[in-house]
Design a binder for these strands. Structure first.
Lengths: 196, 196, 196, 196
DNA sequence: TATGAATGAGGGTTCATTCAT
DNA sequence: GATGAATGAACCCTCATTCAT
């Protein structure tokens, strides 16, 4: 995936845009080819089939995302800051890359993703899950199965980005801050907190 | 939608199962017909097109869901209990109707839903949103845009059901209770709470 | 065909209008039924099939036409007057019944009419052909195969009506008179006439 | 239309034969493809739809016809000879190309041709109409709207060819000569001619 | 490696016809 | 006789994929 050719990248980007707009079904290979500026047959020199293309595109985006995430982390920070940092930067990535967000959301809910909408999505955020696990193990976060916690948190990130992109409720730094705060309040360990 | 015919219901149920298994694209009208026990042409006496069928199926499920939700609410209960009740019963509905869950998740992320994955989903949960609004206005919940709050909470419900169904992490009453607790901790209004 | 029922007539008229507008192919039985104000199945109590309906409609129109023609003839008139009378009244019938004209023109050029566009059309105008035959035999018309003559003349009638209806060149009594005159000049027997 | 590919030509010829035999409706694209020796999908590389195919076939034939017509004209001849030449060669074209004749007759009477059976047919014979116009303007032909004259004359050509092809009345050079003569007698300008 | 015309299985949809009511 | 929901074969067309150039 590292030595990705220009042609492959063009095909990926063309697919990404089209799938976002038209869905998997509404996106013929011929149009992917046209928008990528290559011949239809050329795609088949790089990908075995449409399914393979979609699958590889998923990996491609996952990796791009991971790269973006990792640049922002810093193990030296205190836990809450790392958590906030991660959450916000992740959310901003989605906001800045709506095509990627919509593609992935379609993907994880489609039969392409092996009928397990959370599995791959989660593999992609190994780093994130490790962060949560650490939080649970050190007692900073509530004592809940860390798989569940990270899935829930990732859900809030995706939902927040969607609210921004679809509902047109603007999410600036202040709003995002307010939302992580809220998530954090739910996740962090405060003995005897659940009382009204 | 009230006096729905048996044939329409059979077509709906057939579509629901197939879409869950194969996706919109992977589900030919011919197979929907076969599994519903009707002729291909019969579908077109009840629905104008495949798109219409999908759209009406969405409404059909939304209504079924709403019915299930409303049976469990009781305005006499205190707010936290209503909140918990709602969250859990909603989540249990998804868990007991995985086809509905997967269909809706595919739907809201597909071009069928007018490029706005949250809009209709939200209309469906008007009641839910009203509950949240009340919480915010009475000061029980944090002072956050109630649209955002309800979208986030609905996201946690969907994600929890998916964890149960896909990741095979069993979500019994105890686990669900633990998770709502966590969500509640995040949402409820506790002055000076966000400090580690 | 004489004791035609109201329902049959309604079906005929509905078919006529639709075929004119949409052609044979563009006219589904279901729509014929709807526009006739009967149920789809009802048509099949009166006609064996769509083909039968079309075929019988052709006869129905042919008879209606013949009736209209016969009212206008008068064997006591001199030959030229009868010829003119026939030609003009026939043409006016088409002009006043454009649906009939277009239906018949489609019919005689379609596979419905047994691949012989002139045969039935001509049978319909037996009376006309007899008139021509008489003209040839008495030496008033040129000595040409009367089948040919009558086919040619009928062609000029149809074409004149079409010019009026399609090309929107108005054909009043004067114009029609001018055109028959011209046809007559061609058909009548004038020894040594063909020189420039 | 000049650099028409072999495949396009094969599709055209296949369509022509089938439409003549079965009509537009009775001619499935699949059979057009088979008889043309191509795959069904191939047609759609050359034509947008069945309608487009029919429309382009009409143009194709019109052009072929025009070519055939123009080879035979010669402006140096006297008017009557040009007229006769045109009429006969046009009629012979139809006789030699019955598929073309029947296709065009179906076409101009179908909804394909924009509800104006004479319009396009006429455009095709611009050259013909000019000849008639000249005749009228120079006083050789009767003083009648030249659009009407040319439509009428074209009608006699089509009808004569149909008589030959359908009624099996053989039209050799002698018979054709006799018929044009008759048409000519009707059209040419003879002062005081219309008397019996 | 790149091309794009060609393929043909399979899709959504239509519609002449039937039959239980 | 009249109805109209149901039928299913057949239609037009799409599109993932191939292969000669």
């Amino acid at each position: 995936m590292e030595n990705i050719t220009d042609k492959k990248r063009a095909i990926f980007e063309s697919t990404l845009v089209l799938v976002k707009e038209k869905g998997f079904h509404g996106t013929p290979m011929s149009q992917i080819a046209k928008n990528a500026g290559v011949a239809a047959g050329t795609i088949y020199h790089h990908f075995d089939s449409k399914e393979t293309l979609i699958l590889e595109l998923y990996s491609y985006i996952r990796d791009k995302m991971l790269d973006a995430m990792l640049q922002l982390d810093n193990e030296a920070m205190n836990y809450k800051d790392r958590f906030f940092n991660f959450w916000i930067s992740h959310c901003l990535f989605y906001i800045k890359n709506p095509n990627a967000l919509f593609f992935m959301e379609q993907f994880v809910n489609s039969p392409y993703s092996n009928r397990d909408p959370l599995q791959d999505n989660e593999r992609f955020q190994n780093t994130f899950r490790d962060l949560i696990k650490t939080g649970v193990e050190t007692g900073v976060l509530k004592s809940v199965n860390s798989l569940i916690l990270s899935a829930l948190i990732h859900g809030t990130i995706v939902n927040t980005a969607k609210i921004h992109l679809c509902r047109r409720i603007n999410m600036g730094q202040a709003e995002l801050q307010q939302i992580v705060e809220l998530i954090w309040d739910g996740m962090r360990n405060i003995p005897n907190a659940s009382k009204v």
